[in-house]
Measured scan of single mutants.
Amino acid sequence: CHSECLGNCSQPDDPTKCVACRNFYLDGRCVETCPPPYYHFQDWRCVNFSFCQDLHHKCKNSRRQGCHQYVIHNNKCIPECPSGYTMNSSNLLCTPCLGPCPKVCHLLEGEKTIDSVTSAQELRGCTVINGSLIINIRGGNNLAAELEANLGLIEEISGYLKIRRSYALVSLSFFRKLRLIRGETLEIGNYSFYALDNQNLRQLWDWSKHNLTITQGKLFFHYNPKLCLSEIHKMEEVSGTKGRQERNDIALKTNGDQASCENELLKFSYIRTSFDKILLRWEPYWPPDFRDLLGFMLFYKEAPYQNVTEFDGQDACGSNSWTVVDIDPPLRSNDPKSQNHPGWLMRGLKPWTQYAIFVKTLVTFSDERRTYGAKSDIIYVQTDATNPSVPLDPISVSNSSSQIILKWKPPSDPNGNITHYLVFWERQAEDSELFELDYCLKGLKLPSRTWSPPFESEDSQKHNQSEYEDSAGECCSCPKTDSQILKELEESSFRKTFEDYLHNVVFVPRKT
Rank of each mutant, 00 (worst) to 15 (best):
A144G: 04
P329E: 07
D328F: 11
I129K: 01
G131P: 00
R179K: 13
G243A: 13
N190E: 11
K360Y: 04
S158L: 12
I214C: 15
L266C: 02
G159L: 00
N190S: 09
G295T: 02
M346S: 04
L212W: 06
S192R: 00
I379Q: 03
G189N: 07
K407R: 02
R347T: 13
R176W: 02
S260Y: 07
G140Y: 06
Y300H: 12
D289S: 09
E184R: 05
T254R: 07
F358Y: 04
G256H: 04
D206N: 05
K226N: 10
L252F: 04
Q121T: 08
L108K: 11
V325K: 05
P342K: 05
G183Y: 02
S396K: 09
F174I: 12
N334M: 06
I188Y: 10
N141K: 12
L151P: 00
L180T: 09
T361P: 02
R332V: 11
I214T: 12
I357F: 03
K226P: 01
Y167S: 01
M297T: 14
R176D: 05
S239K: 06
S398R: 03
R370V: 08
L108P: 14
R272W: 05
N307F: 09
S321K: 07
C261P: 01
S319D: 14
P351W: 15
N150F: 11
R165M: 14
L280Q: 00
L349I: 05
N263L: 08
L392T: 07
I357R: 00
H233R: 06
Y167P: 08
L153T: 14
E236K: 14
I134F: 13
L219I: 07
S171I: 01
V325P: 00
I395A: 03
L406T: 05
T353V: 13
E187F: 09
A251R: 05
P391M: 03
I134L: 09
D312Q: 04
L298M: 11
S132A: 10
Q314L: 10
Q203T: 03
I181G: 00
T127P: 07
L161S: 00
I157L: 05
D292L: 07
C105K: 02
N320I: 03
F275L: 04
K267C: 14
P225V: 13
Y300S: 10
N263G: 15
G140P: 14
W352G: 01
Y160W: 06
E246W: 03
A316N: 13
N224P: 01
G343A: 05
S173Q: 07
G295P: 06
W282R: 00
K409T: 04
L266I: 09
E302D: 06
L349K: 01
K350I: 03
L186T: 14
H106G: 03
E146A: 11
F221Y: 13
N136L: 15
S321F: 10
D249N: 03
N190A: 09
W352R: 05
V381M: 11
K177T: 07
N307S: 11
S119E: 04
Q216I: 04
L331M: 11
A259H: 13
L349A: 13
S239T: 14
E283T: 08
R138N: 04
D115N: 05
L107A: 09
I188M: 15
S398C: 14
G373H: 08
L298Y: 01
C105G: 00
L392W: 15
A374V: 09
Y380P: 00
K253S: 10
L204N: 03
L108E: 14
M297R: 03
L392K: 15
F268Y: 07
R244F: 06
W205K: 05
L143V: 10
T127F: 06
T213G: 08
E237C: 04
A144E: 15
S319R: 15
L331I: 06
D292S: 06
G313L: 04
R138W: 02
D257Y: 05
G110F: 04
R281I: 13
F296P: 01
S389M: 15
A251G: 11
I357S: 02
T113R: 03
V104R: 02
P391A: 01
I327Y: 05
E155K: 15
L204S: 05
F220R: 05
R332Y: 04
K162L: 15
I327L: 04
F193W: 05
S319L: 05
L133E: 00
G240N: 08
H341R: 08
T361S: 12
H106V: 07
Q199F: 11
E302P: 09
L349Q: 01
S173N: 12
S400A: 13
V381Q: 05
V359K: 00
N387L: 08
H210K: 14
E146V: 06
T213N: 03
P287V: 10
S319Q: 09
G139C: 01
A195N: 09
W282E: 00
S260K: 08
S132R: 01
K360M: 08
F174E: 01
T185M: 05
N307K: 10
F358P: 00
L212S: 01
W322R: 01
K234F: 06
F358W: 04
E302T: 03
P388M: 00
L345W: 14
F221P: 00
S158G: 05
S269K: 10
Y305E: 09
G295M: 14
T118A: 04
I154N: 01
I135T: 01
T353W: 04
L362N: 01
L204F: 07
G159D: 01
L219W: 09
Y191I: 13
P351L: 02
V104E: 15
A195S: 09
Y191W: 05
E368N: 00
M346P: 00
I114T: 01
A303E: 01
L178Q: 00
L169E: 02
E184M: 09
N200R: 04
G295D: 12
D393P: 03
T361N: 03
E236Q: 15
I379G: 02
A149S: 06
P351N: 03
V117F: 15
A144Y: 07
L169W: 01
D197S: 02
R291N: 07
S116R: 14
G152S: 03
V325F: 07
I405F: 13
N198S: 05
R247M: 10
Y355P: 00
W344M: 02
G348Y: 02
L252D: 09
H341W: 13
K301H: 06
W286K: 10
L298C: 11
E237G: 04
L107T: 07
S402P: 03
P410H: 14
Q245R: 07
S260I: 14
T113W: 13
P287Q: 05
R244A: 12
K162G: 12
G373C: 10
A316R: 10
P287T: 09
A168R: 15
T386Q: 03
P304E: 15
S230L: 07
S401Y: 10
L172H: 01
V117C: 02
D335F: 11
S321L: 07
K350D: 05
I357A: 07
H233P: 02
E187Y: 05
K177M: 05
I250E: 15
